[in-house]
C-alpha cells in the first residue's frame, strides 16, 4: 500500500537531511504511528506521501503508484485517494460543518445530490449528527476535528494521513478522536498517524515506527511510545 525505498530528503539550506535513506513498507489496512521528537522528520513523511514535495533520492510508492513520477493534473486525482487530518483542523470558518464536508465533494466535481446523500451519513459516523449546521466557531475543538475527519473520509479514501490530529485537544477528547480513527481503520482504510502523544500510542498498541535524526530507529508491531 505504502512503500518508501531509500528515501532521502534534504531541505534547501539545511545542513543535514531530514530523512536519511529511509525504507519502510505499510500494508493495506494497517494502523501505523510515526513517533519521534520535533524535527525528527516524521512530518516530512506526510508531505512526501501527499506529493507536496519530492524526495532528493529514493522512491515513494502509494497504491502501487510511484508518487514522484505523478505530474500535473494527476496529482489532484492522486490526492483524492488520500484523506488528510491536521493538528489545526483546517476548516473553512465561513462554512457550516455540513458545508465544509460538502466542499470536499463539490471541488472534485460531485453533484449536490451526492453531497445531500453522503454528507449526513459521514457526519453521523463521526458522531456529529444534529450539529450539521453549526459553524466551526460554534463547535468545540474535538467536534471541529471530527468535522475534519468527516471531510477526509467522505471520499472513502484508501489511506488516511493524520498529522498530530490530537495535538490541540485535551486527553479525553483525544481518545474520542482515536476511537474514531480506529473505527475508520476497521472499514479497511490504512491509517498513518504522526504523533508525539505517548498516552495514545501506549493505549492503542499498534505498529510504531520511531524516527530520530531522519532515520528509523525502531519499527515494532503492537509497540509502545517507549
Amino acid at each position: 500500500m505504502i512503500r518508501l525505498e531509500h528515501v532521502t530528503k534534504t531541505y534547501p539550506k539545511a545542513s543535514r537531511p531530514s530523512l536519511d535513506d529511509v525504507s519502510v513498507s505499510i500494508e493495506k489496512g494497517e494502523f501505523v504511528f510515526f513517533i519521534g521528537p520535533s524535527g525528527s522528520g516524521k512530518s516530512s513523511i506526510i508531505k512526501l506521501l501527499l506529493h507536496e514535495m519530492a524526495p532528493n533520492r529514493g522512491k515513494v510508492v502509494v497504491n502501487n503508484k510511484d508518487v514522484t513520477s505523478i505530474r500535473g493534473w494527476s496529482i489532484s486525482k492522486f490526492r483524492r485517494t488520500i484523506g488528510c487530518v491536521f493538528q489545526d483542523f483546517r476548516l473553512l470558518p465561513n462554512r457550516t460543518a455540513y458545508e465544509n464536508v460538502a466542499f470536499a465533494l463539490e471541488v472534485i466535481g460531485k453533484s449536490k445530490a451526492v453531497a445531500r446523500r453522503v454528507v449526513p451519513e459521514v457526519l453521523e459516523l463521526v458522531g456529529l449528527g444534529g450539529k450539521e449546521h453549526r459553524y466551526p466557531h460554534e463547535l468545540s475543538g474535538g467536534e471541529q476535528q471530527r468535522v475534519a475527519v468527516a471531510r477526509a473520509f467522505v471520499n472513502r479514501p484508501l489511506i488516511l494521513l493524520a498529522d498530530e490530529p490530537t495535538g490541540n485537544l485535551d486527553p479525553d477528547t483525544s481518545i474520542e478522536i482515536m476511537r474514531l480513527l480506529d473505527r475508520i481503520n476497521r472499514t479497511g482504510t490504512t491509517v498513518v498517524m504522526v504523533t508525539h502523544d505517548s498516552n495514545i500510542v501506549n493505549q492503542m498498541r499498534r505498529r510504531v515506527i520511531e524516527i530520530e535524526g531522519g532515520r528509523i530507529v525502531r519499527d515494532q508491531a503492537r509497540g509502545v511510545y517507549g
Binding site: G72, W73, S76, R79, R80, C84, R90, L92, V107, I108
Partner: peptide, 15 residues
C-alpha cells in the same frame, strides 16, 4: 484557506 483545502482534497488546478 479555501485554496489550501481545495488542494488537500484534490481539486484540480483548473478548478
Amino acid at each position: 484557506r479555501e485554496v489550501a483545502v481545495m488542494k488537500l482534497v484534490g481539486a484540480s488546478n483548473w478548478f
